[in-house]
Write a protein that binds this DNA or RNA. Structure first.
Lengths: 350, 350
DNA sequence: GACACGTGAGGACACGTGTCCGCGTCAAGT
DNA sequence: ACTTGACGCGGACACGTGTCCTCACGTGTC
């Protein structure tokens, strides 16, 4: 005999609930808000009634009354790339531990204004942007938020004027990669999906150039890119076809630096399909250090994004703005990535 | 010279905003709610002022006034497994297209009551559960929701009494797998992480038994499991160590059926490390058909979960309850998965 | 018996919005 | 000049809550 929780219309206001308990509405309200000066007997009565009826105060009325919403808006580029989702997951967990609720929305192109308005109408106390967005659009939103004095932080998206941001030092990561490969005897490098225009000083290309220069290796002769030959999708298939093209070259590079892990894995497939041994005849490196890197044959050397650290700092930047006067200078924080060496590059040439 | 959007304190009420525009509050309200009988000139003035000030009506006050919240609560087991996130992504997109906002929360064990209360206090119009939860806990929440008459749907989690649910027919998927492997000449099967108690009639084991029986193959002699030898984590490493153990067997199976893709990939690694050719000497199949299946060597045969379809049906079940009288019988819908044959099993045994 | 004290009742107000209603204003049509 | 709409104004109320206030009741103390 289970106690049926009264399949009746649920109680929707403290007034109604107070009648059910047999107390005054104000008394119930004081119990719910843990005010002092109440008999423990009364408190228990209310508790019991809440369990019986499942009554919950209307959050809309509570916050209307002026209580802060403790809500953070999170704007995502999408929910399909593993790294984006990992960031989201880490961020939500962290916010929850600080007693913030998160409002998660995926931004469809051109809808950013509508989305930010939605967040503002929900009176969020701050907004986080995760992923890559059309820069002009994002810049406009940031300008609006600065106008309102709404706290915000942009994760890993450089070049937005006046935006508070946390960015991964991809250049630093590539410096580590190049140093590692040079130490293993490599002198010629294939670049897969890596272009100069991305991320400026913090971009991958900048790091590669810097590191090669430090080893007195001439960039133009040491590196080769075939990106223009194939449809650029930054995915597995892109890497595979690129590798097939590289394999036909007479003096092909001995090391391959990919924009991300999917391209790197595609590259390994392509090279292996052409009969090349990895890492014996060609080294391959990825970027992002997804779980998948440990599941390939050979396992893939990659650069870890330090997601936890990025999010930790991002939350710090965001929450630090709440309740403070708006800053005149944007906050810019940089995260150092970490090279994880695995089989795909761990072979001494010569 | 950019127009600075007035770094002043933002406007927070229609009254204040109406003073800014030079109209009556009620007139502004009628513009915002698209009521008829307004000069287009007036509408434009309000529009322009909204762009200038970025004013947004307080959602808490709007919904307090009785307007429905158009919000759906989504309760996730976690945000780290790719399939869970894919479901979330598909669901949120679908809900958005129907003009619902989603409230996404990750359930920490033991916090389900608090979480559901949070949803209810936000006056959601329905709740979706995605992932695997402690069954008793979930059952209790469902009972409460039924008590309130709050619409809900449980995605892919069988055995919750009185829950409206959408479930993948894993048994059917395994029937397809077994039929495929038998057609390729296999007669002995290694089971990796697959147990009988999961999901009952819709569970994998049930399908395997059924399919073998149809081929007049005696289950006990045809199948083998070594799950008890290793720490069960349902991940890559579990598969790898299992495979290592299988490799030492004298009369080892020729086909390996894994609970999921990660175990299957681990299994391939383990078998390959022992010198076995896949699919020449051993066939391997996964479950879930994640992207990664196309990136392994050899590519992995797997069973596709039909996530889009699952979510479509789930949303249909949920939204169908809104505004309707509560049902006495729970809705149970089943989704048929789809076998995707790739290299790892596509070999005709001699 | 007077008093203080602890506890709860009940009234009042504010929060921002949507909506209804009566009233003014202004221009166009008769 | 008068009527008729069209349009906007401003007052009023309700939504559910938190908080403050005053008042009443009961118990224990001096």
């Amino acid at each position: 005999m289970k106690k049926k929780p009264s399949a009746r219309r649920p109680i929707t206001s403290t007034a109604e609930f107070a009648r059910y308990v047999g107390l005054a509405r104000t008394t119930v309200s004081r119990v719910l808000n843990r005010q002092p000066g109440l008999k423990s007997n009364t408190i228990e009565r209310v508790q019991r009634a809440m369990d019986e009826t499942g009554f919950t105060p209307n959050a809309y009325a509570v916050h209307l009354k002026g209580k802060s919403t403790s809500t953070i808006g999170i704007c995502m580029e999408d929910l399909l790339t593993p790294t984006a989702v990992k960031k989201l997951s880490a961020l939500q967990r962290l916010l929850r531990s600080r007693h913030y609720t998160s409002l998660i929305e995926v931004l469809e192109p051109g809808q950013s204004q509508r989305l930010v308005r939605h967040f503002l109408s929900m009176r969020v106390e701050g907004i986080v942007f995760i992923g890559h967005f059309p820069p002009e659009e994002l810049a406009q939103r940031i300008a609006e938020l600065n106008g309102h004095g709404t706290p915000h932080v942009v994760i890993d998206h450089v070049g937005i004027p006046n935006a508070h941001s946390v960015t991964l030092d991809r250049a630093g990561g590539m410096v580590d990669v190049v140093n590692h490969l040079v130490a293993r005897g490599h002198r010629s490098f294939g670049l897969l999906g890596i272009s100069a225009w991305l991320h400026g000083k913090l971009g991958r290309m900048h790091g590669i150039i810097q590191a090669l220069a430090a080893h007195r290796l001439p960039f133009a002769q040491c590196t080769r890119s075939l990106d223009h030959l194939h449809k650029r999708e930054n995915d597995f298939e892109f890497g595979r076809t690129l590798a097939a093209s590289f394999a036909t070259l007479k003096d092909r590079p001995t090391a391959y630096l990919a924009l991300n892990d999917a391209i790197a894995i595609g590259t390994m497939h392509g090279l292996q399909a052409a009969g090349l041994d990895i890492p014996g005849e060609a080294a391959v490196t990825g970027f992002n250090n997804q779980e998948i890197c440990a599941m390939t044959r050979p396992t893939l050397t990659s650069v870890d994004q330090q997601i936890e650290e990025t999010i930790r700092v991002g939350a710090e930047v965001l929450l630090g703005q709440i309740g403070q006067p708006p800053r005149s200078k944007p906050i810019l924080r940089t995260i150092e990535p970490k090279l994880v060496i695995r089989q795909s590059s761990d072979f001494q040439l010569g």
